[in-house]
Design a protein around this nucleic acid. Structure first.
Length: 828
RNA sequence: GCCGGGGUGGCGAAAUGGCAGACGCAGCGGACUUAAAAUCCGCAGGGCCUUACCCGCCCAUGUCGGUUCGAGUCCGACCCUCGGCACCA
């Protein structure tokens, strides 16, 4: 009967020790710090495998740095505000707070069972009033600096839930909760002025590009959407009223044959006052039609371009041409100026539109080689060429002319160079209960003013009945009615709460000083602990959370609270966990419960499988057989490691390499090679699967090597192998390694041992198999000593009988020698 | 349409321009066992040659071309797939 690794007792034992010893506490003892952070979870019931995966990845990195002598800060908390808690309240009549804290407790239990090396003294939940107080404090500071403001805007509105929805909560034009059709509604909402930082958010990428996946930076750039162009000042022909358009193609200005306004453009209302009744009716019918349609974003692309002529004309400022002003469904009010100049010859959208409504076209770019005739065009020509019909710019290369025309427009005051961004200000108010109350007060006398700092936090009231109708906070009289902090008169509170992305935009700073009741974070402490050296999380947060957190960092820096420019030096984005080819999810019914896994195999085996099955950034395909495999490896290793444990406990001193047998030498070298490989795989490649594969190879060599423990030198070698192997295993299978470390007589926790360093000399083999090729094809393999000279190698190569067959009667053209690798003979 | 990944055995995956498939899973054969499980040992990309074996050869990293003594890796075109953005002017 084979021995099995007693995972249950071992894991329980070490959990207790780690807890009582505060093994993973940030010591603050002056060693260099290393801050490892994984994105904290939303505590919706149970942690799933996707969570477990991120935390295991982060834990490997935390343990590794710890063993390298860093004082590691590795905290965990809960992103605890959000809609699911409120939905549970509506459905099951539990208070969101009770529901949430129950889940938090369960999640904490799961973390502890996984044995992740957190500093539990730093735990926080964003729904704690000690936490959200600082959300409110920050909000007020931002309000004072003009970075938080109120504006009326069309927003997504669910008529059934009676609440505003975030863009990401609108799916196919329907509410994610009740599936009713989402409408647009003009509402006054709170915004953060993230657009003040747009260019810095782009520039900041330079500071982090070495540590972040290229993909995430590209996604952020895409999201921010910088485009450089010119705003051109058109004027209405009759009234001289300005109509500004934004274009990235000033080189095509002479080809503009009409203007298209967004249906909601303010100038449309002005035009309506002047045109005849039939026209007004036509315009209004079109406006109504577009308003009804514009919500289902997905259909936008395929939607047919439509428009109506407004009856008004504009003057093209470059040539005085009188061109019609249209409104169209393909022009968006919230990008650029909400108006475009249409150049049908060189823009595919304008081309389609003008064909449909038989609008005129002027060609202004003629490509090299083939002459284009307007009458024969079937699509817009969007390539380059020489300008024609373009006044003084005729004959210029269009690309070069862009800048020239822009300059000319600026000097002749008919346009202005402009940079446009896709990024909008951040709408942060929500008409929901389970979030941070926005700490603003409406006083009839004093206006909109912030709550006094000494009165923070503005606490969420308990006296709420959750019906799913309306804004819950509005129903609490004790909450709404308050005193004006300025004049002391009766006033009303803001009843909207903050988007939960606010909570997660600075939580990593609060971990540094989570118990501070006087400051959001102490300046000196923040200076010592920030930034986060290694962040781990899902790529799905590339554009929301990771941009918001960068924004907050810059805002807080400008407030003098912290000194860093970027919050996360290195970012690792891990792939999703799949099963049977699908994303693991409750709705697909293909979930695997972490609790069950831990029960059946223990935490270490579950970890080992997940780290081995795929590199962190790949999606991971779950495999029950794979877990079995990991389990077999751990048990095999266990047997091998404890086999002679008692005998080596008392052994001290280094083994002597020279007197070992060949296979023992091979084992010694393998240890050094594995140290080198595992170190590189963790630190450079962040590829844990190959690190584990390397350790499996080490096991294979280890188990194939005969060692006699009663021979002192061999016992010393065994001790060397065992201890180094244990150290390498520690970040991956922490309980297992801690137990082995204790059993071999190690002192202290394995996590405070020095990470081993490979002896370079011993990482190389003493002889290698040299590949001999003829014309690039392998024809022979020869065993030669390491670093055999080219001359010596040649002698051996040409002595080969087998090779002679290939060379007979041929002329040798060239010989290529790659030391310790290959010898290639090129023949004719 | 634009941007960014990715396409390698039955499967998850490895490979500073230098032996493709490390490591593992599943599979097959054997040992142990009354038997099975567990464990241990061994085989293992496809094809051809061969009675069979060894040996040997040929073909193989999405497709087609190129650079190179040599390409999974570099270059060009294309196909498929995943993710993001998308009437953004």
């Amino acid at each position: 009967m084979a021995d099995f690794y007693p995972y249950k007792e071992t894991e329980e034992k070490w959990h207790k020790v780690w807890e009582t010893d505060h093994t993973f506490k940030f010591k603050n003892d002056g060693r260099p710090k290393y801050y490892v952070l994984e994105m904290f979870p939303y505590p919706s019931g149970y942690l799933h495998m996707g969570h477990v995966r991120v935390y295991c990845i982060g834990d490997v990195l935390a343990h590794y740095r710890r063993m390298q002598g860093f004082d590691v800060l590795h905290p965990m908390g809960y992103d605890a505000f959000g809609l699911p808690a409120e939905n549970a309240a509506i459905k099951n009549k539990v208070h969101p707070a009770d529901w949430t804290y129950k889940n938090v407790n369960h999640a904490r239990g799961q973390f502890k069972k996984m044995g992740i090396s957190y500093d539990w003294d730093r735990e926080l939940a964003t729904c704690d009033k000690e936490y959200y107080k600082w959300n409110q404090w920050l909000f007020i500071k931002m309000f004072e600096k003009g970075l938080a403001y109120r504006k009326k805007m069309p927003v997504n509105w669910c008529p059934s839930c009676e609440t505003v929805l975030a863009n990401e909560q609108v799916q196919d034009g329907k509410c994610w909760r009740c599936e009713s059709k989402v409408a647009q509604k003009d509402l006054t909402q709170w915004f953060f002025k993230i657009t003040d930082y747009t260019q810095e958010l782009l520039d900041g990428h330079k500071l982090i590009e070495k540590g972040w996946p290229e993909k995430v930076i590209a996604m952020q750039q895409n999201w921010i959407g910088k485009s450089t162009g010119v705003e051109i000042f058109f004027k209405e022909a009759d009234t001289q009223a300005p109509i500004n358009v934004f274009t990235t193609r000033p080189d095509t200005i002479f080809g503009a044959t009409y203007i298209v306004l967004a249906p909601t453009h303010p100038q449309v209302e002005e035009i309506k006052k002047r045109v005849e009744a039939a026209k007004v009716k036509e315009i209004e019918e079109f406006q109504a039609k577009v308003k009804k349609m514009d919500i289902t974003v997905l259909t936008m692309v395929s939607m047919e371009k439509e428009g109506v002529f407004t009856g008004a004309y504009a003057i093209n400022p470059v040539n005085g041409n009188k061109i019609p002003v249209w409104i169209g469904n393909y022009v968006l009010m919230d990008y650029g100026t909400g108006a475009i100049m249409a150049v049908p010859t060189h823009d595919s959208r304008d081309f389609v539109f003008s064909k449909k409504y038989k609008l005129p076209m002027i060609l202004v770019i003629q490509p090299e080689g083939k002459e284009i005739k307007v009458e024969e065009m079937e699509t817009a020509y969007e390539g380059g060429g020489k300008l024609v019909n373009s006044g003084q710019f005729n004959g210029e290369e269009n690309i070069a002319a862009k800048e020239k025309i822009a300059d000319w427009m600026e000097t002749s005051k008919i346009g202005k160079k402009k940079i446009n961004y896709r990024l909008k200000d951040w709408l942060l108010s929500r008409q929901r209960y389970w979030g941070t109350p926005i700490p603003m007060i409406y006083c009839e006398k004093c206006g909109v003013i912030p709550e006094a700092e000494k009165n923070l936090p503005v606490e969420l009231p308990r006296d709420i009945e959750f019906t799913g109708k309306g804004n819950p906070l509005e129903t609490s009289k004790s909450f709404v009615n308050c005193k004006c902090p300025k004049c002391g008169g009766a006033a009303k509170r803001e009843t909207d709460t903050m988007d939960t992305f606010v909570d997660s935009s600075w939580y990593f700073m609060r971990y540094c000083d989570n118990k501070n009741n006087n400051e959001i974070v102490n300046k000196t402490i923040a200076e010592n602990l920030l930034p986060v050296d290694q962040y781990v999380g899902g790529a799905e947060h590339s554009c929301m959370h990771l941009i918001y957190a960068r924004f907050f960092t810059k805002v807080m820096r400008d407030m003098g609270l912290i000194k860093i420019d970027e919050p996360f030096i290195k970012l690792l984005t891990q792939g999703m966990v799949h099963k049977d080819g699908n994303k693991m999810s409750k709705s697909k019914g293909n979930t695997v419960s972490p609790d069950d896994m831990i029960e059946k195999y223990g935490a270490d085996i579950a970890r080992l499988f997940m780290l081995f099955a795929a590199p962190p950034m790949f999606d991971l395909e779950w495999s029950d057989e794979g877990v079995e495999g990991a389990s077999r490896f751990v048990n095999r290793l266990w047997r091998k490691m404890i086999e002679n444990m008692e005998n080596i406990k008392k052994i001290n001193g280094d083994y002597e390499y020279a007197t070992l047998t060949d296979s023992q030498k091979k084992l010694a070298r393998k240890v050094h090679q594995t140290i080198k490989k595992v170190t590189k795989d963790i630190e450079v490649e962040q590829q844990f699967n190959t690190a584990i594969a390397g350790m499996m190879e080490l096991y294979n060599v280890f188990s194939a090597t005969e060692l006699e423990v009663n021979k002192p030198n061999e016992a010393k070698l065994l001790k060397f192998v065992t201890s180094n192997f244990t150290l390498l295993l520690a970040p991956f299978v922490p309980h297992f390694a801690e137990e082995l470390w204790e059993r071999q007589g190690g002192t202290g926790s394995v996590f405070f041992q020095k990470w081993p360093i490979a002896d370079e000399k011993l990482t190389v083999e003493d002889s290698i198999e040299l590949v001999v090729q003829v014309n690039g094809k392998i024809r022979e393999k020869i065993q030669v000593a390491m670093n055999t000279s080219q001359l010596e190698t040649e002698k051996i190569v040409f002595a080969s009988e087998r090779l002679k067959e290939w060379l007979v009667g041929k002329e040798i053209v060239k010989k290529i020698y790659v030391p310790n690798k290959l010898y290639n003979i090129v023949i004719k």
